[in-house]
Design a protein around this nucleic acid. Structure first.
Lengths: 188, 188
DNA sequence: CTATTATGACAGTATAGCTTACTTATCTAC
DNA sequence: GTAGATAAGTAAGCTATACTGTCATAATAG
């Protein structure tokens, strides 16, 4: 099989990051900028892959998976949230959630109570057992985040947050901003 | 069904972020730190969810999914990489990759050529068609990252990168550092 | 009373991962 | 040159996590 010119060129570029392959003088700035953005994607991929690995291993001991982790996380973050709110956070369908929430309720990690004003709603909370599991999962990640934060330093952390906020759409931003507002009012 | 005290307490905390619920004077610092780390997880989740949404929509037009996106991304990033290297980046098994790579090769997005020194290896490259698709996917995300970077500013971007690097394990760090080394040697 | 809403349930499909095991081609070392 | 190691491909079968569509129930809102 004869190689196409593209394939030959690509072979030569092997192990060289894309930003270093340009030779034209004028293309430099544009090229670097694109490379920079590609690196950002690389890093997001790596960080996400490595952050979720440890909790996943724990969850598999209990016959649970990633979906259950996300669910436990959000119920822990906003105790008493409704099924509808949880769906909005997770960005999945009700039918998908049912099969994740079902086992969590059946095995006693999550409890449901009817809403006070609107009794159609099912307010979700973690049971003692659920809190214990969620804490165990969080502790894995806390160590990793704490190390990364300490290593990077305070201003870097602030930058990290600013960029992440910029990457998220309105719904998530509103949530983030509501946390910030609370903190600047409450703490200090 | 009678509510447990925990459920009642949780209901009251509804919509209040965890950091604002502490009343004891001494617990403040520790509590804020934990809240801060939980917010980081929230934000990583949101950013990842929102970043991947647009490319996914495009891919589904072609009968492809997330896994194909990641595969195209890495082949594009390191043209001529071997199957083994790709597996290491993706962190999945060979058998899982086969079912992702198969359609990409069959439909003419990815080409294979035997390795020059080691002819057992199959070096992977994007075809013209594959490059076009990858670029289309990247362009979605470029806009988002560019906006986030511009909004956050240069120092924030640097901090973003430092924290992300801290969150990743050795393999990913080595890769990231190799890019940085290249850039600081090559550019400027 | 009727329409809407919140939730739950059933059935089927697709994607993306996994394990285990076998084959083929090629390289390396003796 | 043969033997064993290695890179890749292949096959059968399993699991988890999403999706779609449809229907049921109960409570709220008008």
């Amino acid at each position: 099989m004869q190689d196409t010119p593209t394939q030959v060129l690509n072979r030569l570029k092997r192990d060289l990051p894309a930003g270093s392959t340009h030779a034209q003088p004028g293309a430099g700035l544009l090229f670097l900028r694109e490379e920079e953005l590609r690196v950002a994607q690389d890093m997001m991929f790596f960080a996400m892959r490595d952050i979720t690995a440890a909790p996943l291993a724990i969850l598999s001991e209990f016959g649970l998976g990633r979906a259950h982790h996300r669910t436990l996380h959000w119920i822990g973050r906003k105790p008493g949230l409704t099924v509808g709110e949880l769906l909005a956070f997770l960005g999945i369908t009700k039918q998908s959630l049912t099969r994740v929430l079902g086992p969590l309720i059946r095995d006693g990690y999550v409890a449901q109570t009817a809403g006070a004003q609107d009794r159609r709603q099912r307010l979700l909370t973690l049971t003692e057992k659920g809190q214990a599991l969620e804490r165990r999962l969080f502790d894995c990640q806390r160590d990793r985040f704490l190390a990364a934060y300490r290593e990077a330093g305070g201003p870097a952390v602030e930058g990290f947050r600013r960029v992440l906020r910029g990457l998220t759409l309105k719904q998530g931003r509103d949530y983030i901003d509501s946390l910030d507002a609370h903190r600047s009012r409450g703490a200090r």
